[in-house]
Amino acid sequence: MKLTEFTTAASDYAAHVDALFILLSVVSGAVVALVAGLITYFLIRYHKGSGAPRGETPERLDREIEIGWTAATSFLFLFLFWWAASRQLSALATPEPALEIHVVAKQWMWRIQHPSGAREIDELHVPVHTNVRLIMTSQDAIHDLYLPALRLKQDVLPDRYTYLSFNATKTGVFHLTCAEFCGTDHSVMAGRLVVVTPEEYSRWNAAVPEGDDLAHQGKALFLSLGCSGCHTPGSTVHAPDLKGVYGSAVQLADGRTVTADEAYLRDCILLPDKNRVAGFPPLMPNFSGAVTPGQVISLVAYVKSLSSQSVDTGQGASP
């Protein structure tokens, strides 16, 4: 992953925010320099026992200084407020949206539906130079769609719509993630914002089948059923890492060696005690009754995909 996926200012609005940030940094830097400089100077010059002249300053002067810097600070802050607020007001007055995209957040994935009916998960394709409006809602806790390259963020609330409007000016792949703490896998509720040319967008729209592919549905299940709590590298629960397990030879606790095919994976989910892997404690819960057959298929498809690297592993580390 490259830092530019976060830092590129991919819209005019983002460039404005950066400008404001730089302005504030310069002002703050000046204030820090002033205060730090004065303090350092005073510390050196008026160090205990130094020969510098001491004595009281006139009270009237003190009062004038006090009023002076109170006024100066107030004016500076009012100016900064005005600057920031006017940026915000102009951002609010967005023109009619050309494209409205629905976003549904749930623990811990983003489901996105385009006007064409095309759906995608944890990815958001948008055309460049187009007024896009996201219409967002959550199925459970509060989430927050964060698009760093656009300097935009908006909480996604249950039973209510919130919106994000933007007009991307740069094509490319940028980061997309959840910024409001939403539970166990909050930090991997991430994906990609893909800004493409309008032509590519229509081509992509036509090519994407309506509905999710199995592996993606499986990934969502894998997260929502809590599988990821144990089957994650770095988890303290001692459970097998599923990356690359499909198709490999597995040494079982009772001495047998089997090839991890689809039937094996299915049994592992529904009858975990049947084929326990050597070296692991019997911690895996029994999911029979808890998942539908269709869901098992998706889960298996997801585990398979972990070996072919077609779906990212859900650790946010490297797609």
Partner: peptide, 29 residues
């Protein structure tokens, strides 16, 4: 003196977060 330095930095970054556009970008980060 440490307080003064850190309070100045903390206070000034508070200005960043008081302005809506920068806060939208920086909040929850």
């Amino acid at each position: 003196l440490g307080f003064l330095g850190l309070f100045t930095i903390g206070g000034l970054t508070g200005l960043f977060l008081a302005s809506v556009p920068i806060d939208i970008a920086a909040t929850d980060s």
